[in-house]
Design a protein around this nucleic acid. Structure first.
Lengths: 335, 335
DNA sequence: TTGAAAGCGCTAACAC
DNA sequence: GTGTTAGCGCTTTCAA
């Protein structure tokens, strides 16, 4: 009533101008099936003329659906999420969903449960681009799809759909690449969590298959740059003669580069380095990391499709999807 | 009515259980001023017991306020936004606002106007952590605060509050640092846009004051890593004897490192490199960029406070805030 | 194919 | 201080 609100047009206004009832307008709005072309045109025209925008609040209240999807990113500082998000939006946007993203680290730091935040917003569903945490996810009343993270047995959400890259295979690809380059002493830096564990497994199996002894560091550390550095320092202390290092992700690989340099070693001439995620970081010329590409954009798109399906068929059995990663070769591996 | 909705408790249920009217519950919910302690307790208890969560849709509809703030980030791949966002949330969260973020690049790529997205969601206000674009912002019916970007005259939104770092002074700090280190041939790589322009100005003035000839490249390019690389290549072609380079931001600085290396030069031994933003990138050990710290977290917090004030007093005159940057010295400048 | 009418859950006067 | 009462703008049966 104040000057604040220049009286946004409502569905009533549209109906009046188009000479129809508001129900009809509502139908047109949602791409109704059985509306005469004439009326539809009239409604569309009225909408256009008035500059009408439906009120999300009202429709959410009436329909009990917000048409919004919460996306929980593990850590904004690890840029692997960028493509994932692009993929998600490429299908969610056209479907009329709004996506709102939050950063797990940030939320957790302030003592909040990020999932609660989304629930408070009444998101219709959640995308978890992070390690699912049973504690946090205890009682989520909406569909959840885990994207980009292939879960380990016990932590699995019984109800959740999973769309991820085949991390174990990715670990294999990277390791095989190194083996084919002639490396015999290949180390691996890893961290806590499911994705790292799968990648590690791929590394270990492939190394053994090639008759090499796997050597891993950082198993109970984090997966950030500093953790990559620290793990590499330890790795080199115990195995000074390594000629190659596979990192559980790109940022850790950057940490590894630092540790190598401090020892007077450089990549790829002394030690080959391979990352994982093919994040924007890997493409930086100065780093030029050979990296496993999980095809995060595709994962995002597929996750979104899965979500849409789930929303339509809440009771369908979850069908986990595992995308095949590929290897992007840049100079850090000396290939 | 389907099994879908396990009948979420409403304000009615709370009221009944607490033995009060729903208005009273509503009052308590919003930290009412004049409610008796006893009743308040009863209401709070009932809320707790029932696991009640207010419906945002309903309250938005009734109050015409969504209590949500849209934050528009320039580019998710440039991690300077992380701290800014943390600062924003540190004050918006406690104030009961939800922040939803979008990435300008991503939105633009899909041909959407990101501001429209927020308006469709009926955000109560917008934070622009990006260059304000008059075209996009034409008719924004809600308060806007520009955060982290100090605007240039003509592009200025008449109505917008601005909270930014003093980029010109930052440029000065960085340049002075280099001068004090004894450098006489200092180049600068820059790009389009306001922040870069201010930083450049600080560089140019300080260089001249020190009796040095400023030399700038990349003026009409972008501000990503590849642009930093390209600008440095040109810089070095024309001024092969430079001993220091100031970049308009950290990612460009990383691009510069690559260009230097390709010419057989390294930082800091041959050429000192300084970045800007003090983003997570700068702190990577492998990069260890000396960088101007705009104190993005503080900027975010201040921007949020400004927003809150504006929301209460829509007609108060804008009061731009300019925070003082500091210099974070790491090894890339050889100090 | 279209319209009427009853809410969705909450806020905000206004009474009491 | 606390309760009553209208809506907020849309969706959704149910009739027509």
């Amino acid at each position: 009533m104040t000057r604040e609100t220049p009286a946004r047009p409502t569905i009533y206004d549209v109906a009046r101008r188009a000479g129809v009832s508001k129900s009809l307008v509502s139908l047109v709005l949602r791409g109704a099936p059985h509306v005469s072309a004439a009326r539809r045109q009239a409604v569309l025209a009225a909408i256009e003329d008035l500059g009408y925008r439906p009120s999300r609040a009202a429709s959410a209240l009436a329909s009990q659906q917000t048409r919004s999807i919460g996306v929980l990113i593990d850590d904004f500082r690890n840029p692997w999420f960028v493509e994932l998000l692009a993929g998600l939006r490429s299908v969610l946007d056209p479907a009329g969903y709004t996506v709102s993203v939050a950063d797990f680290q940030l939320e957790a730091a302030s003592g909040r449960n990020p999932v609660d935040g989304f629930l408070a917003q009444h998101a219709d569903a959640l995308v978890l681009a992070a390690e699912p945490d049973a504690a946090l996810l205890g009682e989520v009343p909406v569909p959840v799809v885990v994207a980009g993270v292939r879960e380990l047995g016990p932590a699995t959400l019984p109800e959740a759909d999973v769309v991820a890259g085949d991390d174990e295979h990715g670990g294999t690809l990277a390791t095989r690449h190194l083996v084919e380059l002639g490396h015999r002493r290949i180390g691996h830096i890893t961290g806590r969590g499911g994705p790292a564990a799968h990648r590690r497994r791929g590394y270990e199996r492939t190394a053994r298959d090639a008759g090499l002894e796997p050597f891993v560091a950082g198993q109970d550390g984090g997966t950030a740059e500093a953790d990559g550095y620290a793990a590499t320092v330890r790795l080199l202390e115990e195995r000074p003669l390594l000629t190659a290092i596979l990192a559980a992700n790109d940022v850790m690989a950057v940490g590894a580069l630092a540790a190598l340099r401090e020892r007077g070693l450089s990549a790829p001439s002394d030690v080959a380095v391979v990352g994982y995620d093919n994040s924007p970081l890997a493409a930086y010329r100065y780093l030029a990391l050979t990296s496993v590409d999980p095809h995060s954009r595709d994962i995002g798109a597929e996750a979104a499709r899965t979500l849409l399906t789930r929303l339509e068929q809440p009771d369908a059995p979850p069908r986990p999807a595992l995308l095949e990663p590929t290897l992007v070769i840049r100079s850090s591996s000396g290939a």
